[in-house]
Amino acid sequence: MAETTRTSATTIDSAACAPEWTEILRQMIFIRRFEEATEREFRRGKIGGYLHVYSGQEAVATGILSAIQKGDIVFSGYRDHAHALTLGADPCRVMAELFGKATGVSKGKGGSMHLFDAEHGFYGGYGIVGGHLTLATGAAYALRYQQTERIVVCYFGDGAMNIGSFHEAMNIAGLWGKQGMCPVLFVIENNGYAMGTSIERHSALTDLSARVRAYSIQAEKVDAQDVFAVRGVADRVIRQIRETGKPYCIEAVTYRFSGHGAADILQPYRTKDEVEEHRHRDPIMILRNRLREICGLSDDDVKKMEDDAGERAAQAVKFAEESPVPDPRELFTDVVAEHGPQPETES
């Protein structure tokens, strides 16, 4: 077994100035603006339920999902807005889902934790910590069984690694990988906290990649505030998964700037100073500065991206606000395909 490695892009090759990086920056800025809008709308009472925003972790979604191909399948936990958006889900319909509207990606039946957009390869946000890891493992088996080259990406947090389904999924993925039947990339979004419990307090062994390797799955750590580093690892690893049908795990070391959820106001588990310190390693800032220094990205370009992102987020809010609520008859649809409940004739 290899030692834990921590990949970080120290040099930038010429490809760094490819237009794709500008797109990634644009997407990261948009995710930030979108999440800020969701927090605002939550405060205004327009968004119900739980709301877990992604601010600070943008490089994890964009660095990996920009490296996959059409047809690949993505599973996520409940902090799932960025994954859906990066895969191409319509921001208006994502926001409408948060507003509980008929035009939402899940018809207003899922909400923030259960975004779903099969057309774009997003097979769901899931709300029970660790539960979806087994689903992703089975999905990967199915893709190989059907003799496709497609792979699965499965996001989860450091907090998911202490629940039984994590261990069952890892063991089965390790077993199936030996037969080349489990092309799945597990991505640990290690933001240091299981809700409000820090990694030192929730994991007996804090080297998370080492824990994955215990199941005979290759794993490596990456500085996930640096999207160059994330993407670099992703390109290599995804190629390998596609070729071998074996699972792989990236431990993306990141930090969330917002509370665990919108109701996490006081954040007694960390200090303001700690958050401020991490803001110096804002993934958007890191990419922006690099493109500015090396590729000549101008302040005007950045300003335009910022404005454009704000505008798109505002449009999404407007769309969500103006969309109709689900028809009451929708209460009874999609429970099962067959033998389902019948809506009452009077509704």
């Binding site: 009472g45 119900g48 339920g49 959820g261 919108a262 109701a263 106001i265």
Partner: peptide
Amino acid sequence: IIMPKMGDAMTE
């Protein structure tokens, strides 16, 4: 400045 929703069940 609006009265913000600070919890999942907060109404006022």
